[in-house]
Design a protein around this nucleic acid. Structure first.
Lengths: 232, 232
DNA sequence: GCAAAAGTGTTGTGTCTACACCCATGT
DNA sequence: ACATGGGTGTAGACACAACACTTTTGC
């Protein structure tokens, strides 16, 4: 295949890697954006990333580029989203872009360079190029996976109360979630396990909340084939 | 981003596009493979595809390359799977590959070139490069989407009996499926609609089977957010 | 005691699997 | 008539949402 030749320009397009780095901050789903200094689209916010190196994989590349913006050790999960290739997606040159979804636990607070900031996904500024659609795809992917995988581990701290986890799920899903049912679903599926410790109540009083943690801290499919599956 | 420079070789890798073209033939899930004529991996079976052109999108490119193997009009569905980028995935040169999943309805029988043939996915020959894993990913994607989308339209003919559809689902899922429950699930979700016509029984007798068709013939999510969703 | 927050019990509903039973045709 | 394959009825299991109720704390 590599030897095939056909009658088009032989110049390879530039391959860039982008990431939608998502964290729940202040009860809202937010993503990391970087303000472009140069044309095209100077001044516009865009997804962090950069050009793929000659000897690195896409995942290694996005980790390398993100390291300039955040502490990569804070990334609890990273997965490939899609590759964009419309010939006119970049005004100046032919550019292929592979987008990743990265998740940061809600208790991390990485320091950021001056040109980089968190933005709420439901109130984004105008974004450069086709980045708006990539962010929406990332949000949809996260929402879907909250339903059939254990991906909650990647947005939550190592330990948390159910009320805290409920707020994280509610922020990610964009709708109210009850702690009661959330607990039953996640415990029934063996995603969540209770710890012996409790969290002391605030000055407002209330019963001390039990702490929980996710059983596994890497992605697992927990509800495969919802339908057309035999009982046993 | 495009202007960024860093201390690696500036030569862009070759970008190829591959497709796992899937059809159910003879009650088995099969995929289209092409026998490599040249080194590396000469003689090995590999996924059809080719080099991305300078002015085309990935999807346009895979359609163009597939046109050399099958009648592209037979493709009922085409979606991007993933992009592979391990630096050593090709022995001779740096190569990025974007893989697609293509579906062909079971009643199509496209004519094929001499170097191309259908192979049952559960009994593949050794494949070139990392193509084995791509085929598995394609199969898993199809199986999952049969549960929560209307993707059945893409493996089925325009009209079919429930017994025929059951056999297609069974072949794709790799497990027994009952026509009774399949009908109820798909009719309840308004994916399937009955037609007035019936199919005449064979010489073996039996009640004439009603014909059905899919309501929509493009991909739709039909069972989003199985969990944590209010009763509405 | 009372407010506040966490946690449990329980009921009802909808979706699915499984299986028995009925229907329509050819020979 | 009876074999063959298509189609329907129905019961039971299960997972889930909803909500009332109980528990444990601070003030």
């Amino acid at each position: 295949m590599a030897q095939d030749r056909f009658a088009t320009l032989n110049r390879e397009p530039t391959h860039v890697v982008l990431a939608v780095v998502v964290q729940i901050r202040g009860g809202r789903l937010q993503t990391l954006l970087w303000q472009r200094a140069r044309e095209p689209d100077a001044g516009r916010w865009s997804l962090p990333g950069g050009v793929l190196g000659a000897a690195e994989s896409l995942e290694a590349s996005i980790r390398r580029h993100l390291a300039a913006k955040v502490d990569v050790a804070e990334l609890s999960h990273l997965e490939q989203l899609q590759t964009l290739s419309e010939p006119d997606r970049h005004p100046d040159e032919r550019q292929i872009a592979t987008a990743y979804l990265g998740l940061v636990p809600s208790d991390a607070d990485p320091s950021l360079p001056a040109d980089t900031a968190w933005h709420a996904i439901d109130a984004l500024p105008p974004l450069a190029f086709d980045h708006q659609g990539i962010v929406q795809a990332a949000r949809d992917r996260l929402r879907a996976k909250l339903s059939y995988t254990n991906i909650g581990f990647a947005i939550a701290p190592a330990q948390f109360t159910l009320a805290e986890l409920r707020d994280l799920y509610a922020a990610a899903l964009g709708r109210a979630v009850t702690a009661t049912n959330l607990q039953r679903i996640l415990v029934r599926r063996h995603l969540l396990e209770p710890l012996a410790e409790h969290r002391a109540p605030t000055s407002a009083g209330g019963r001390p909340a039990r702490l929980f943690r996710f059983v596994h801290r890497s992605l697992e499919i927990t509800d495969e084939f919802a339908v057309l599956r035999p009982r046993s």
